[in-house]
């Protein structure tokens, strides 16, 4: 039995501890907002927070989450109104949208660390999350918008 606090709720899971967190979320718990893009740690579509830090859930066995806190895109905010989510809507960031859970979770982890990140910090935090549709420019603008209170609702 493995205990994980997932999006604020305690789960007791009787699963193979080797199961990647990605598939625990998607197939066992029905939280499909975390996406499969490669399963090899190379795209970041599966990014979630483990105790607030960004991890690629396809590379994180369930055992590594035991007695820890996991946050997925579904738990990023109670009402979909995290400053980043609002900024994403205002900048119309997503195209196909498939990579965007990973993008938002990576950006949210960055903001947990550095509420006013520099461009270099944004580059470092975001460059591992691939977007085939090419939304990077808008992602940067949305992060800047979310971290700059004057620009937030403009």
């Amino acid at each position: 039995m493995i205990s994980v606090t997932l999006n604020g709720e305690l789960h007791e899971l009787e699963l193979d501890p080797d199961t990647p967190l990605l598939w625990v979320l998607r197939d066992h718990l029905g939280l499909t907002g975390t996406r499969y893009g490669c399963g090899e740690g190379e795209c970041g579509a599966c990014l979630v927070h483990l105790d607030g830090a960004p991890v690629k859930s396809c590379q994180t066995p369930l055992a590594a989450a035991a007695d820890r806190t996991v946050t997925t895109i579904e738990g990023l905010s109670p009402d979909g109104r995290h400053p980043l989510q609002l900024a994403w809507i205002l900048e119309d960031v997503p195209q196909c949208g498939y990579c965007q859970s990973g993008q938002l979770m990576a950006a949210a982890a960055l903001l947990n660390e550095s509420p006013r990140p520099t461009d270099a910090q944004i580059d470092a935090a975001m460059s591992g999350i691939l977007c085939r549709c090419g939304t990077y420019q808008r992602i940067r603008r949305a992060i800047q918008r979310a971290t700059n209170p004057e620009a937030r609702n403009g």
Binding site: T32, R35, E74, I89, L90, D92, G97
Partner: peptide, 21 residues
């Protein structure tokens, strides 16, 4: 016009092919 598909794409609720259950 803001895209109608954006809200679901920022909350994880958007349903792609792999999300069919």
């Amino acid at each position: 016009q803001r895209r109608l598909d954006t809200p679901g794409k920022v909350t994880g609720g958007a349903r792609f092919g792999l999300d069919v259950r």
